[in-house]
Write a protein that binds this DNA or RNA. Structure first.
Lengths: 223, 223
DNA sequence: CTCGACTCAATAACAGTGTTATAGCACTGG
DNA sequence: CCAGTGCTATAACACTGTTATTGAGTCGAG
């Protein structure tokens, strides 16, 4: 049977978690491409092979970091939720996105760097379920769509068209991702980047129908 | 004297150009991180050492690709210039940005991937002039500022505040970079990405004061 | 023309990477 | 208690960027 010697399951999960945490630290320090399996194994006291049995190799590890990153981004988005005040929700949502990116630069670059989604190199069949999942990004994006939709509905009389909400949410995502990406890549001093990000928030919120003074008040409240 | 044996200068420049072109091809195929000095040297018939004498090592080569990339982006921007019709200029400028990114995905990722700007690893003093030049990006950005400024001035009565133009141009850059980055990273099908990019063009141009039908006409003309 | 000096390119070596093959350990099921 | 199996550690392979060394070639001075 394949179930023969599963050993203690919780131990396996703990090891995975420890490796993932350490890997995230290394990615934070050296960037997504500076992650070395040997250094990671040394830092955790394991051998290099443990990573292969637990993740199936480096692509599997990257994949795990990828999904963990989107889970955390989703958590940031949920923490910013504020259904009773749609405008505040919107502002907090946008600021939370940038905060996530700046707090987790390594993960962010790994998620959006455009690597061909970590296709495994070897012929290991056990971890063939990798390579593809853009869908990990969906929950975080759905939260953004939610915020944009309620904000639009709150400031306009008629309920907005769902596809229009999707389109606008994607534009907002693009705006946030672009500014944050430029900031991370070093094309703006942090103070300028913050001011420009605030400009983007103003830009989008007023487009949603919010009054300029209200937006300013929310920005001041979140500062 | 240091001028002793400069050998034939044009030959050196030719070799640099050949290596750069081949390197760009490899970056296009394998991504910025998949560039191998040995493979590059093999493809050009040189030895690995030639890259060291001509570029000072891999960081120097990356740096050369970086500046070449921004020169080409600037060329795309200049080709989109259309001073007599500010709105058309604006639309063409934005579309040219995306076209550049899609035509030169490898270079684009190298330019905006956020690598710590190619600091040389060894203690080679001859190529110490590397690491820093964010300024390579300036000409391309200046062209964008120019387009945004004249478009704003054309659709508004009073001449716009220069700093306001700069801020808006940076927002536009962020919007373009974000959408293109998401597209390159695989977060949108090409057809959806194009439609959303068009949405961004509409969004920004109408914000500049252009009439919706005019923008639509320009988009149709450029299709 | 000849010879020293100097630059550059090619070979090979070093430290590092991901991955794989081989062997050994620790454990469970009978 | 023993066979069998999953997991790990050691070592090897092919590859990377970088550096040291060697050898070939060119230049200018005497």
């Amino acid at each position: 049977m394949t179930q023969a010697a599963t050993r203690d399951e919780p131990n396996r999960e703990d090891q995975r978690a420890r490796l993932l945490a350490a890997a995230e630290g290394l990615v934070r320090k050296h960037g997504p491409d500076g992650l070395s399996l040997r250094e990671l194994a040394r830092a955790c006291g394991f051998s290099t092979m443990a990573i292969y049995t637990l993740f199936g190799g480096k692509p599997g590890l990257m994949q795990a970091l990828y999904t963990a990153g989107f889970a955390r981004l989703h958590a940031y988005a949920l923490a910013a939720e504020h259904r009773e005040a749609p405008l505040r929700w919107m502002v907090r949502q946008m600021l939370a996105y940038r905060r996530f990116a700046l707090d987790n630069t390594g993960l962010y670059r790994l998620m959006f760097g455009g690597e061909k989604r970590f296709a495994p190199a070897g012929r290991n069949t056990r971890f063939a379920s990798l390579a593809v999942p853009v869908e990990d990004a969906y929950p975080a994006f759905a939260a953004l769509v939610d915020a944009v939709g309620t904000c639009l509905a709150h400031h306009h009389a008629a309920a907005p068209d769902p596809s229009e909400v999707q389109d606008l949410a994607f534009l907002v995502w693009g705006q946030m991702h672009g500014l944050v990406g430029l900031e991370i890549a070093g094309y703006a001093e942090p103070v300028d980047a913050l001011a420009r990000y605030h400009n983007a928030v103003r830009f989008i919120c007023t487009h949603c129908g919010a009054a300029a003074v209200e937006v300013e008040a929310e920005l001041a409240a979140e500062a």
